[in-house]
């Protein structure tokens, strides 16, 4: 089973390399390491968000509110920075993570304690958090000249040849990989997704595990709230509007099963990168950016079709073993 899962990430990696190769045939500039690192940096935020979403989807849940959480947290941090420029950025990042986690915990409590389906809860909070962003800011923007130098500079600081923003994605990938493969919490996430009933008998609190998964996706969304605002240097109500679908798309393309229990950190990260390569190659190959939506839609459908085949094959193998 593990080799099968491994195969999926390798296929996705091969698809990405092939895609880059095809583009490079006509436009060699695109495949230059410098440009590819830029693409990675541009989509670092999507990668981090996809990792948080993956954990939630693994527990048979879904978090539609991540983009709204990001917008609210980003606005809160930007306004704090504009009002009190003397507060150090490190504190603001901690604040972003705390607010994000609190919003995620709100989702989690409703799922855990009241048993409301996650899609309903986060459909509600999707609009509530975005509306709250408007109430918080009064519809006003926070512009570049209102933000402090340190606030804007941090993700751009180059360290060992890569900007801090890229390093945050790399660190997130490493931490999530450790979390999912080397901790009891990570194993219980998979267990809850694969078989909730068996998980209960194994002594796992299913509701609490889902709650913690939502806290984690909230924390990640909060962190990305800061990263987004400082990268694009503008905080408005419209920030990341509709981005929740890109996050889920990255997971789906990365082989995370919407039915829970199946998916890896490498897959989710590669799924986000795949979307990144498509998004950033369109201007290079002179296709109107208006094509991007349709292309990523087709990629999602294709990915689901391919994933479903893999999962079905896996199912048959389990069945045969049971018979033997």
């Amino acid at each position: 089973m593990k080799t099968l899962a491994k195969h999926r990430e390798i296929w996705l990696l091969a698809a990405i390399v092939l895609l880059i190769a095809i583009i490079a045939l006509r436009f060699p500039v695109f495949a230059r390491p410098g440009n590819l690192l830029n693409v990675f940096n541009d989509y670092s935020i999507l990668i981090i968000l996809a990792l948080g979403q993956m954990v939630v989807i693994l527990t048979r849940s879904i978090d539609l509110s991540m983009a709204s959480n990001l917008a609210f947290t980003g606005m809160a941090v930007a306004m704090t920075n504009a009002a009190f420029p003397e507060i150090p950025v490190v504190f603001l990042i901690l604040m972003a993570m705390a607010i994000g986690t609190a919003l995620g915990a709100f989702n989690g409590v409703l799922v855990w304690k009241l048993g409301i389906p996650p899609i309903v809860v986060t459909l509600g909070t999707l609009t509530i958090f975005r509306g709250a962003t408007f109430v918080l800011s009064g519809g006003a923007w926070v512009n570049a000249d209102q933000m402090s130098q340190g606030f804007i500079a941090l993700p751009r600081i180059v360290f060992l040849g890569l900007p801090v923003l890229s390093w945050s994605a790399i660190t997130a990938i490493a931490l999530f990989h450790l979390l999912m493969t080397r901790t009891a919490f990570g194993r219980s996430i998979y267990a809850v997704g694969i078989n909730p009933t068996a998980s209960v008998y194994a002594g796992i609190d299913v509701g609490r595990t889902k709650f913690l998964a939502f806290c984690l996706s909230g924390l990640v969304a909060g962190l990305c709230g800061y990263l987004w605002i400082s990268r694009y240097v503008i905080a408005s109500v419209e920030v990341a509007n509709g981005y929740e679908l890109s996050i889920i798309a990255a997971c789906v393309i990365g082989g995370v099963s919407i039915a829970g229990g199946i998916g890896t950190v490498a897959g989710a990260a590669l799924g986000a990168l795949f979307l990144g390569i498509i998004g950033s190659s369109l201007p290079v190959i002179n296709i109107s950016p208006f094509w991007q939506l349709a292309i990523s839609g087709s990629a999602i459908i294709l990915a689901v079709v391919l994933n479903a085949r893999g999962e079905r094959r896996q199912g048959r193998i389990i069945l045969r073993r049971a018979e033997a």
Binding site: I62, I248, L293, A294, I295, S296, G297, S298, I300
Partner: peptide, 16 residues
Amino acid sequence: LPSIVVTIGTMSLFRG
């Protein structure tokens, strides 16, 4: 296929 994922895909496709 699971309808929630399929229709997230076609949602992007149709509007795209």
